[in-house]
Write a protein that binds this DNA or RNA. Sequence first.
DNA 1: TGCGCACGTAAAT
DNA 2: TACGTGCGCA
Length: 778
Amino acid sequence: MGVSGLLPLLKSIQRPTELKKCNGEILAVDAYGWLHRAAYSCAVELGQGKPTRRLVSFPYTLLAKSVLTRYTRYVTAAMHRVRMLKHFGVTPYMVFDGDYLPSKAATEDSRAKKREEKTKLANELLKAGKSSQATQEFQKCIDITPEMASTLIQELKQMGVPYVVAPYEADAQLVYLERQGLVNGILSDDSDLLVFGAKRLLTKLDQYGNCIEINRRDFCACREVSLTGWSDSDFRRMAIMSGCDYIEGLPGVGLKTAYRMLRKSKTPERVVRMLQFEGKRISENYLTQFYQAELTFLHQWVFCPNKKELVHLTELDGARTAKEMPFIGAHVEPELARGIATGDINPITKAPIVIATTPSKRRHSQTTCITQPPRKPITSYFKGHSRVPMGEMDPNCFSVDPQRVAQITDGGLVPRVFPLPRPYVDSAGQATSATISTPRRTSSAPVRTSPTLRRRRTEPISSMLARVASSPAPTRASDDNSLPSPSGAPQSEPPNRPKKKVRLCDEEGDVDGSPKRSKFFPPPKTKTSPTRARSDAYLFSDDSIEESLRDLPDFDGWKPLNKRERSIAIFNDESQPSEQGPSQGSTEDDSQSTSQNISQNTEITVPSQTKEDALAVPTDTVMPPPMSVKPRPRPLTTPSRPNLSRFTFSSRTSSTPSSSMSLQSSVFSIGPTPSTGPSTAASRMTPLQRLGARATSPITSPQQPKSKPRPKMGNDLAKGLPVNPSFVPLPKVDMAEVEALNRPRGSEDQIIPDSDGEVEDELELPPRKLNLSQFAFS
DNA sequence: TGCGCACGTAAAT
DNA sequence: TACGTGCGCA
């Protein structure tokens, strides 16, 4: 979730890359994403909260063991990815989510609500025998519990893979590791990482090891919005204003609008004032919440592997203390923090996680570890919950007692902090939960609920406020245990089984068909023989998968596995001749993986060119020539860019027909000179390119009214009128046109600061007079 | 009228 | 996450 639309906004600086290029590097990995992905294969079991037919088919059918199996099953799937990274020489540094942040309570609650609804729906579908639809719904309500994470941790320990459980959000922890230089980059699908300040984000990793790299240093090359001169703080504020996990966005304000408003008004206060002036209704607490969100992004607690204690992601500047920011979560004592970080202690309940080893009657005895809350009967996971519907809540739980606030703010001297309302805890429960939560910190015999349920709870507002106001010792903003709550797992559902065999969508499942398989891999070569494929299959396989396959012949969700492994085997083959290491920036478009794979191919053939061409033209994206890709080129936009105004200008000129032609010719590597005229260039273009060229040219035409007479002039000449050559007006620089060229093209967002001219006084003016002569005839 | 944006929905993971 | 739709603005 996070900030939606961030990746599209940064599209122009996304570079396709490959894991194998990260050989020897350590990448921090958002483990939650992997677990979540892997859990899709077990969606039905998880959703039902009980063993399915598949599990019953195991040789041992005891309930507890079956439950163990459903956990380990997706852990196994997650481990596949770990192995893939290792295969490419990358050391994953797995980072797990910890406790929930008070700042995120509202988001979590709405997610929980959705999950609950989906679970309900899925169970109904299942009852109705619509198993495939049910699976889809179950997949939407997957939640990852600390116990599940812990199971993966056991595997990681065995493999010697570094990991850490964050005290709160993995995002902040990932960025901290990067800042500390403990990792070379971050591998995650969460674009929020950039808001936290990630420098190098690898995202959209596929099964072949292809991914997208976003570098913070490339921000100034972003063409969707001009981020030149924008600080991390500006970027963060833009993201927050458009809406993030910690605060709802302003109505009608997305990323671009937030960008524009901040460009104009500079500060959130002025943005709010401006909006209010325009008649928009903005909550009185908006700014308070805004700064809460900002501080959460900045100062969230993380675990420092060196100091072995909690630190802030960004050290406090002295302006405020952690106590004044209860929304970032409570501090955890070093000893406890270490236990959490190592995965020995449940980050939410703060109770030790008990690891049970599977009594292995399995052929390949492996120490499968599962963490079950001790002495907790399995049935307790499926009990009903006492979530209070919003409509039945005490309306006062949303309001803040002014006296209390005055007390808290110390007469206005301290910033007001209103923890988000928690509609899922009723007022009666608050007292109970508050009392329970405190002793639980001491981890002594907590009242246990389902792990899923516990994650959802945060501290009551009252106790949080009380602590802010008075409490001397920092206590964690924790959850209470009193209420069994809604869970992703349904409660006491009838034990009827689906009539049809449940078809699970495994993570690997997507690989199965040939369409998914990259067409850029030499297909026949690797299909040497079934035995070969089988042997390759072991590359990323492990015992439990094998075992699953053997034991569960009826489960088709695993079938594609072999195919996937086969493709990975192809990878393996690929990795040898790939020393060209091409794809960096071969294209910056959606077709990253395609073009990347094209360029991966050592002999760049005609079809690959045409593909590039076809992609290059319509996207209006500056791309490096694929031919020159071999020596590891960087995108045109990214390289040393000493003069930003120069960059901006050149990108603008690319929109003119001639320059776009020259761009294309450079892309195609066919034009001897970049100054080839449109006609010549066009004649060399494929029909698709011509289409693209036509599509791009009108963009500029409305901005260049003066340029229209030029064709006319050409027509006159063509008519063969007797003219003295010396009188023929040369098609030279039309200053109006040049000016038009120098103006922003298309969106006003693609401009250098303040050129939208609405609030000019506030913005630093870039050199308006550019030296155009060097570009005019190029 | 066209464009850009936000937002809702469907599909894929 | 991608795509389609509708709204608001110029």
